[in-house]
Design a protein around this nucleic acid. Structure first.
Lengths: 64, 64
DNA sequence: TCCGGATGTCAAGCGAGCTTGACAAAACAC
DNA sequence: GTGTTTTGTCAAGCTCGCTTGACATCCGGA
């Protein structure tokens, strides 16, 4: 699963910790998602999409 | 997280087992998602959306 | 030069997502 | 009214998603 989270976050000048706060998750979780260690849960994906005012499909793309 | 999976599935005349096969998950997983026991992972949500040719947002809606 | 913020990563722990196997009950066919 | 299909649900087990706490590195600014 590829995603544009880092691109969207840095575009707003936020640190991983900043984004974590706004999403109510730890900065390690943000880092893990950005570095592809694992995919977010569906509820977290919705939170991310809402925060950036985008659709899930425009942020995340399955690799296969 | 509410979803329209059951509605979409029965609309095509499929059993939970049928849908499970097409998604490569067990019928128990389909049942659990339809009955709200837990949310699908993000990759599975993508598979479901693609199978029904819909967006994730049009199938799943966060309750909050 | 030194310090603070930012990032990457590890470990241990817990609940969520998924598995197979099983059984009971409801719904459907004939 | 019997038999098959479908659905609901339980249990045990494994991995993933997320947590806190910690440590190393890498930079940018005073």
């Amino acid at each position: 699963m590829n995603n544009r989270v880092r691109e969207l976050r840095t575009g707003l000048g936020w640190s991983q910790a900043d984004l974590g706060e706004r999403l109510d998750v730890s900065r390690q979780t943000v880092n893990a998602i950005e570095t592809g260690k694992y995919d977010p849960s569906l509820p977290l994906a919705f939170k991310i999409a809402r925060l950036f005012s985008l659709t899930i499909e425009s942020i995340f793309t399955p690799e296969a």
